[in-house]
Amino acid sequence: MSGNGNAAATAEENSPKMRVIRVGTRKSQLARIQTDSVVATLKASYPGLQFEIIAMSTTGDKILDTALSKIGEKSLFTKELEHALEKNEVDLVVHSLKDLPTVLPPGFTIGAICKRENPHDAVVFHPKFVGKTLETLPEKSVVGTSSLRRAAQLQRKFPHLEFRSIRGNLNTRLRKLDEQQEFSAIILATAGLQRMGWHNRVGQILHPEECMYAVGQGALGVEVRAKDQDILDLVGVLHDPETLLRCIAERAFLRHLEGGCSVPVAVHTAMKDGQLYLTGGVWSLDGSDSIQETMQATIHVPAQHEDGPEDDPQLVGITARNIPRGPQLAAQNLGISLANLLLSKGAKNILDVARQLNDAH
């Protein structure tokens, strides 16, 4: 009898209710805020589980004197976190989706994509230029951005401005803007500013005609071990179906173009009346040469937790077992079709030249 009692006690200790789920994140304040929001949602869904947040620095956090596009290494903000995932030191990792490459290392998958916040870019102005827009900034004003995508589009749109690289986390960039006289304004992701509670610093939100956004911008991705079915089931509740389908289309477009950090590629997606609209573009580094096109596809946005595919093969690095396969494939095909259209119009040449120029500098 006593033996059975011990077995029952052991089973209770090993039951999922007692389990601590370890969540990996970057150390920056924004990353911690984003991770806290994901953990809060998981806690609400699984009140019996405990969650421990483990923060670590990544290569991208450490190399702050070089433009991201020049470092010449993929997975700048993800490699150390993936290493911890691989060694079973954490069970899942919360990322900004735009930091996750469209091809993940073997053994990993994006197990959830959370509801997207505003994906557009924002302009934050130096205190002396508050009330201005990019259009009304004085001639030769210097605007800071760490992104080739932003610089290429904005140089084309605002030729009277000069664009220079600015690195560091959000706090560091804002301090550089406010305390030094080098920059009249800087460009940042609206979602990051909003998550930090800095709505009052948003001086201008850039519309798609001015600057399309990065693939996955404004959404959070939760990376897990691809074979860890328990954790895949656990994080599945975080999937937002519309965000998922938009981001599958965007990531398929980028992957098929073979774009990345070192080339200016941008997108804009919208879901309306059962249609998914995808606009994508590529630019030369100075913005003088560009190709942009829009395509659409009829896609039914499923309700969360309709029964999805059981075999769960990944699409552009994403596993969404609780979302039907048909809409996911339709979104992926839309991204591939748009990429093929741009490639047929000469996108590869623009991107190759951009890559060579970026590598040469």
Score class of each variant (00 low, 15 high):
S96D: 03
F129P: 00
L220F: 04
R325H: 13
S45F: 06
Q50E: 15
V222G: 03
L177I: 07
G168S: 02
I299G: 01
N358R: 15
T145G: 07
S28Y: 01
V94S: 01
T294A: 08
T145A: 14
G60M: 00
R251A: 01
P138D: 10
H305T: 00
E117F: 12
V143T: 05
V265T: 05
K70H: 09
E209A: 03
N88Y: 12
F253C: 04
Q217Y: 07
C261N: 02
G259Y: 05
I54T: 09
T269S: 04
N200R: 03
D352S: 10
I299N: 13
D91A: 08
F158I: 12
H199S: 13
E223P: 03
K27G: 09
A320H: 00
S262C: 02
K79M: 09
K345T: 15
V20M: 11
R195W: 05
I205S: 06
A320G: 14
R321L: 12
L278M: 06
L206K: 02
K345L: 12
D91T: 03
P264Q: 10
L134V: 09
I318A: 04
H268V: 15
G60S: 01
M271N: 08
G218Q: 02
K43F: 05
S284R: 15
E135T: 10
Q275S: 01
P119G: 05
R26L: 01
T319Y: 15
L234T: 06
I350A: 06
E117P: 00
Q204N: 02
L220S: 05
A347R: 15
E139Y: 12
I33S: 11
Q29G: 14
F108I: 14
D312M: 07
T35C: 08
L154S: 06
Q34S: 10
E223S: 03
Y277P: 02
E210A: 07
K348P: 03
N118I: 12
Y46L: 08
E139D: 13
C211W: 07
Q29C: 14
N322F: 14
L276Y: 13
I318T: 06
T136H: 12
S69G: 09
L254P: 01
T279N: 13
T172R: 09
T269A: 09
V94K: 03
T25Q: 03
Q304G: 06
H95I: 03
A84V: 07
T109V: 14
L315S: 15
Q194K: 13
K176Q: 13
S37A: 14
G72V: 08
V235Y: 04
A320Q: 03
T190G: 11
K348H: 15
G168H: 03
Q204Y: 08
G280Y: 00
L285C: 06
I63W: 08
K140M: 10
T294P: 15
Q296I: 06
E209Q: 15
V215F: 05
P119N: 06
S141I: 06
V353C: 02
R150G: 04
D307G: 15
E310Q: 15
L341T: 14
G259V: 06
G317M: 15
Q155A: 14
V235E: 05
R325M: 01
A152Y: 09
P105T: 14
G308P: 05
I63R: 09
R175W: 11
V301D: 12
Q34R: 00
L100D: 03
K128F: 07
G259Q: 00
I350P: 00
I71K: 12
D36G: 13
K87G: 07
N88M: 12
I63V: 08
A249K: 04
T269L: 03
N358G: 03
Q29E: 07
K43L: 08
L278A: 05
K140C: 10
S69W: 09
K272C: 06
L343K: 05
S69L: 08
G197K: 03
K140T: 11
I63Y: 05
R149Y: 06
M196Y: 12
N322I: 08
W283Y: 13
E179K: 08
G60A: 05
E117T: 06
L161E: 01
M295C: 03
W283F: 02
Q34V: 06
A191V: 00
G346A: 05
V103L: 07
P264V: 00
M295Q: 05
I231G: 06
G60I: 01
A40M: 13
K115W: 06
I21L: 15
K348T: 07
E250P: 01
P309C: 04
E89P: 02
A191M: 02
P208D: 04
D352C: 02
A331S: 05
K43V: 15
L245M: 14
E135C: 09
A339T: 13
F125G: 02
T25D: 02
I350M: 09
V38S: 05
L343C: 06
C211T: 04
I350F: 12
I291T: 08
V103A: 07
N171A: 10
H300T: 14
L174F: 14
P106R: 12
V353S: 09
Q194H: 07
H239M: 05
R116W: 04
A44I: 09
D311I: 04
L278R: 04
T298S: 14
A112V: 06
G48D: 13
G111I: 01
G203L: 02
F129V: 09
V316D: 10
P302V: 13
P105G: 12
L357F: 14
G326F: 01
S147D: 06
G197W: 04
L244V: 09
D352I: 01
T133I: 09
R355T: 05
A84F: 11
E223G: 07
P309M: 00
D228H: 04
K87W: 12
T136K: 12
S28W: 00
L193G: 13
F125I: 12
R19K: 13
D61Q: 02
L148A: 01
R150C: 06
G308K: 01
I318P: 00
W198T: 05
E242H: 15
M56R: 08
K98L: 02
L170N: 09
V263L: 12
G24F: 01
Q50F: 07
G287M: 13
L351G: 01
G24C: 09
A226S: 08
L238D: 10
K132V: 10
K79H: 12
G308L: 11
K348V: 00
L170P: 01
L254S: 05
T298N: 08
Q29P: 10
D91Y: 05
T109N: 05
Q153R: 03
Q275K: 12
D36L: 09
Q50R: 11
E117I: 15
L234R: 07
E306H: 12
T35A: 11
F77E: 01
H268T: 00
A252N: 02
G317I: 10
G24L: 09
G221F: 03
L254R: 03
D312Y: 12
A40H: 08
Q275A: 00
V143K: 04
